[in-house]
Structure formats: C-alpha cells, structure tokens
Amino acid sequence: MARSANSASVSFGFVGLGNMGSVMSQNLAGYAQKEGFPKVKIWNRSRGKAEQLAREGFFEVSDTLEDLGKSCDIIHACLANDEVALSVYRQILDAAKSGVILADHSTLFPDTSTTLRAEAVAKGSSFLSCPVFGPPAAAKSANLLVVLSGDEKSRATLKKYVVPTLGRAIIDCGDDTRKGALLKILGNSCILGTIELLSESFTLAEKTGFDAELFYEFIQQWFPAPAWINYGKKIRDGAFSGNTGFTIPGGMKDASYIRRLGVETSTPTPTIDQAWSHLSTAKAIGGEGLDWSSCSAGMRVTAGLPPFKGEDFTLAKK
C-alpha cells in the first residue's frame, strides 16, 4: 500500500488491546505513521490500556465504538469471544459509514463469522475473517501467519499492507468467511493437540526418570516447529504464566469449538476431549490466569505427580 502524492489517506481503527491486540495495533500504528495517515483510533473495554498506548504511540483514543464506525475506513479487532464480537461489531455497524472494512483477528465460530458478514453487507460494509497464528512475541515482530477470507475487493485492500505490517505470510481462503474461521479452529486443534501430546510425553519422561533437558533437545532437533519448541519449553520448565500468552479460558473456548464441530459432523475428537479434561483440572488448581500449556499440570495430576513440577503454586502462577 505504498502511498503516492495523489493517494487518499486511510483512517485505521483497532479494537481489543489484549496480549495480541496491543502489539498488533502498535505495528499498524507504525505503518500509518510511516505512510502519513491519521493516528490509529483505538478502543478497549478498559479505557486505561488504550490511554497508555496513546501516550506511547501513534494513537488516538475513541470514546465510543460508534465514533470508530463513523471515522475509520478500516477497523481491525482482536476480541475475546463470539458474544463480545457480536456486540462490538453491531455497535460499530450501527454508526458506520458505508464501505467500512471490518478485519477480525479473533477466533470465532464459523456461524458467527457468517452472521457478521451478512450484517455488514446489509449495512453497505464488509466483514473479513482474518484470524492469525502465532503468540504475542510473533505478533510483536510481525511474524504472524494471517488468514484472509471475505469480500474479494476488501481482501485485496488488506493484502497491500498486512504483510509485512502484521505478519510474514497470508493464507487466502477466498470469499467465504466461514472458511477463514474454520481454518483457525482446525489450526488451533493441531496446536492444542500438540500441547496435549507434549504434556503426556514430558510426564512420561519424568516418571521413567528420563532427563527433561535431553528430551527437549530432541524436540528442538526433530520437531523444529514453533508450537513444539515454544510449548515444549513452557512444559519442560513448568512456566505457565498467562501474562504474555494464551490463557486457559481462551484455550477452553477453542476446545469447545473443536468439540462442537465434532458433534455437528459426527467426528470424534478424542485428543481434544482429553486436553479439555486436563485444562479443566489446571483451571481448578491454578485459576484462569495460567497459559493454556498448563494443560500439562492436569496431565501430571492424572499421573500422580504434583501439578507444577516441584515449583510452589505461587511461582507457577506468575
């Protein structure tokens, strides 16, 4: 989206400033500033976080979602769940000028994505399902894998700047937003399944007396994929802080989507069922603030080990 002297200015908005949204919005703001566009308008349920970002970067805090709808051409969002997404986007669309593009980076159930697309079209706007793969650290370095689905013209608009502004690569799923939402759920099924397998394997290593450091070295050499390396390290160390990762409630929400799709299509999901059970145990022991890799704590309890690998409970929560 290189800007020439005659190109029109683009006004961006960003909604949802959690672990992922806060760093994604900063990358978007850096792009807007470089291109000479207006400051990125931001809105967050907790206004303090938006104000803090505005003090540090190229942002302007919006008082309401309606203000974003009226003043922005493209609004990116990273939201907690379907209920929040429906509420947020409906408030924006009720006030939005015609032609606004809503680029959703959340993990939504496919039916919700389809509903939001229809409601956006009815208002003369467009809704894109644009979930991303990668942890906050990858978001900060603009190293996310970005999924695009929805209206072709709007997808083309985002392709002009999403890489390298927000991510390293794009997977284009076409016009149907349901496909973008489905890919995110299928991908997260693979990630959660990896966490469950790592949890079982590290627990078995400990119970057989095998060195966890040596086992992790094997993982680095033989499974050099980000999920294996990043979550393997967390499970090896028993380091389950949710401050910079993906917390248990989000993991259980995604697991529920996978299981729901399984029920709707008569497809068994035994690995995810087991991960759900272990996440439930970890939540009961450590609360909602832990990273979803604390699934390992649930596995350890099942195997008769202390949940947090010799660390005290307080340390595991930090």
Rank of each mutant, 00 (worst) to 15 (best):
residue 102 L to E: 01
residue 229 I to T: 11
residue 277 S to K: 15
residue 42 I to S: 02
residue 116 L to S: 10
residue 186 L to P: 00
residue 199 S to P: 00
residue 58 F to N: 09
residue 243 N to K: 14
residue 204 L to C: 02
residue 274 Q to T: 13
residue 313 F to D: 10
residue 111 D to L: 14
residue 79 L to M: 14
residue 159 K to I: 07
residue 247 T to R: 15
residue 194 T to R: 04
residue 264 E to I: 06
residue 121 V to W: 01
residue 95 A to W: 09
residue 45 R to F: 08
residue 60 E to F: 01
residue 274 Q to K: 12
residue 255 A to H: 05
residue 231 Y to A: 03
residue 285 I to W: 13
residue 267 T to R: 05
residue 270 P to D: 12
residue 161 Y to N: 00
residue 149 S to W: 05
residue 244 T to W: 12
residue 169 A to S: 13
residue 303 A to T: 04
residue 240 F to E: 00
residue 32 A to S: 14
residue 294 S to C: 15
residue 69 G to R: 06
residue 179 K to M: 10
residue 121 V to F: 08
residue 202 F to R: 01
residue 37 F to E: 03
residue 200 E to A: 10
residue 265 T to H: 14
residue 26 Q to N: 06
residue 134 G to W: 02
residue 196 E to K: 08
residue 206 E to D: 12
residue 94 D to M: 09
residue 287 G to Q: 09
residue 145 L to D: 00
residue 25 S to I: 09
residue 176 D to N: 15
residue 109 F to R: 05
residue 282 A to C: 08
residue 203 T to E: 03
residue 11 S to N: 13
residue 139 A to K: 03
residue 309 K to F: 12
residue 1 M to R: 06
residue 51 E to C: 02
residue 167 G to Q: 03
residue 244 T to S: 12
residue 286 G to P: 01
residue 86 L to E: 14
residue 12 F to N: 02
residue 308 F to K: 04
residue 204 L to F: 15
residue 309 K to Q: 15
residue 201 S to M: 13
residue 191 I to T: 13
residue 59 F to M: 06
residue 224 P to T: 07
residue 138 A to C: 02
residue 184 K to M: 09
residue 186 L to C: 13
residue 176 D to L: 06
residue 313 F to E: 13
residue 144 L to F: 09
residue 188 N to R: 10
residue 308 F to R: 03
residue 198 L to P: 00
